[in-house]
Write a protein that binds this DNA or RNA. Structure first.
Lengths: 234, 234
DNA sequence: GTGCCTCCTCGAACGTTGGTCGAGTGTTCG
DNA sequence: CGAACACTCGACCAACGTTCGAGGAGGCAC
């Protein structure tokens, strides 16, 4: 709000201005023009800080020191912003270098994939929208080509790719739920209070907390083990 | 809107009213009072019909022939409604009867689980909230106890349970995305147009469409096969 | 009957949200 | 110089989730 006056007039080019105006510009060096990238970055920062519910176009505009309608020149809707943010997150997933062990490569990718999503706990819940961003596609391409190296083709390849990706997404989604939410103690209490209805859950719930990372890794290994098995019997 | 006048005064008891009022009551026989269950049912109907974005407290109230604030006596927030709706959906997942084959039982459950979620395509995206409803817990209890029959305990059991559940949730989430969204032809076009960047994806994308059910079933079988394998080597 | 209490409902309104419109700015190019 | 372009913003809108306080209906004690 306090920068409105300064901002008026775009980046205030080199056409002769009022004496002393240079200093004002120096203090507030309007960083170029707005871009999709800058919007995306700011959106991710806000999402990381306060979660999905608190991301509004106004707060986004405020952070970018712009009036709200300005955003709509670069982006069509708020959903566009979310799509951009989700895809940008995937760019943080480093694509592994290929080794001789395709299964290991696939495992490395999905482990990093999940870890990245957990760094941005709001991201898994936003996957209920078309994942067609270049970064998402690049990771999917790597995963599928890696599994293809294992000798799979056709429906078998598709099933393996989707299975591994869905396992990862599901894990990130459920785990990110607990992270941001009420303490897991309340879940524990609820289950223990109804131990008669959920005996197995109650008996094993204390074991959940320790190491979610290891649990996911184990699930991935299980899936990959299953892949190794059924390829040999086909 | 047209029933406002009729509705005034609750269910219009038997205290003597204006002549002819009986007929009005007969035409609009106020079905009892509002309940959480009725709210939940109506919410699911609206969600099924128009998706998450179009569910508003006002439309929900309108469907129930009630004024919007009335809902807030039975429910604290809109999120409550969503939680109730999600859990209610899980009640539609019929718990399989136990057979001798625990793997088969688990497979049956998750197949039904996914199918139910796809019947309500809005539901997977709402899992980014605590799943502590009784119906969800009952299904999880069945899944965990079934896998426990396979001889698993401790972290191994937890990994298997989460893995299978996450695979199912992820599958439902990604698949429901495509269902309600723009035709998959646009995804196909995008991939084919960038076939140089995504060679494997482009080569195999035409195979995706045929039978998603079979693909998921295959992924589940793969996971279960992996379970059978690593239990024997531990 | 009378008074009271709880359950349930609603009219009015508040603050905020995503989004639109048209006018205005500086810059660029012919 | 003038027109076209890229970009920004003030004013405004309908719709949303939610709150508040008023008030009717039914049941209970007396």
């Amino acid at each position: 709000m306090d920068a409105k006056g300064l901002r008026a007039g775009g980046r205030g080019g080199r056409s002769g201005g009022v004496a002393g105006e240079v200093w004002l510009r120096a203090e507030k060096p309007r960083r170029d023009t707005l871009t999709r990238d800058r919007i995306t970055v700011a959106a991710i920062e806000l999402l990381d800080a306060h979660g999905t519910a608190h991301l509004t176009m106004r707060k986004l505009a405020e952070r970018l020191e712009v009036a709200p309608p300005t955003l709509y020149w670069h982006v069509k809707t708020k959903d566009d912003v979310l799509d951009l943010a989700v895809d940008a997150v995937f760019s943080e997933v480093e694509i592994p270098s290929r080794t001789d062990d395709w299964a290991q490569d696939a495992r490395t990718l999905v482990l990093r994939w999940r870890a990245t999503m957990l760094c941005h706990p709001w991201s898994p819940a936003l996957i209920g929208r078309p994942m067609l961003g270049p970064n998402v596609l690049a990771r999917t391409e790597f995963l599928q080509s890696t599994l293809a190296r294992g000798g799979r083709t056709g429906p078998s390849l598709a099933a393996a790719t989707h299975g591994l990706a869905n396992l990862t997404i599901g894990a990130a989604l459920t785990e990110s739920t607990w992270h941001g939410q009420l303490p897991r103690s309340s879940a524990h209490e609820l289950i223990q209070a109804n131990a008669d209805r959920y005996p197995t859950l109650a008996a094993n719930h204390h074991l959940d907390a320790p190491d979610q990372d290891a649990l996911f890794d184990q699930a991935v290994r299980t899936f990959l083990a299953g892949l190794g098995q059924d390829i040999s019997r086909c």
